[in-house]
């Protein structure tokens, strides 16, 4: 559980979410349960089973390489937390 508290803090920091202590504890508990369930799944031997992501393999539609627009830049930027011209503005990130 303690480990999940740390993970919850780390993910919250990465996602720039500010969680109060009560919310943080609730999310850490949920995360703990999810991880426990995942650990339960580890018990299944899948060493010789290919990963499966879909019920139907190789039946996906493709599309042709032609441009089309359904939305304007303004519509898309409407949900931007902050903007400068048509740039999105985010807190400084330097790798």
């Amino acid at each position: 559980m303690h480990e999940q508290t740390d993970v919850a803090s780390h993910v919250a920091a990465l996602a720039l979410l500010h969680l109060d202590a009560q919310r943080h504890a609730a999310l850490a508990q949920q995360l703990h349960e999810i991880v426990q369930y995942a650990h339960k799944l580890y018990e299944v031997d899948v060493a010789h089973v290919d990963p499966m992501s879909h019920g139907v393999v190789a039946a996906v539609p493709w599309r042709t390489d032609t441009c089309a627009r359904d939305t304007t830049v303004e519509q898309l930027l409407h949900s931007a937390p902050a903007r400068e011209g048509t740039f999105y503005v985010v807190p400084p990130v330097i790798e």
């Binding site: 599309r63 032609t66 441009c67 089309a68 627009r69 359904d70 939305t71 830049v73 898309l76 930027l77 011209g85 048509t86 740039f87 999105y88």
Partner: peptide
């Protein structure tokens, strides 16, 4: 998606949901 890949457009002009 159907957004253009051409170089040098206005920032975020070639984006979609």
């Amino acid at each position: 998606c159907r957004c253009a890949t051409s170089f040098g457009a206005q920032p975020n002009a070639h984006t979609c949901p």
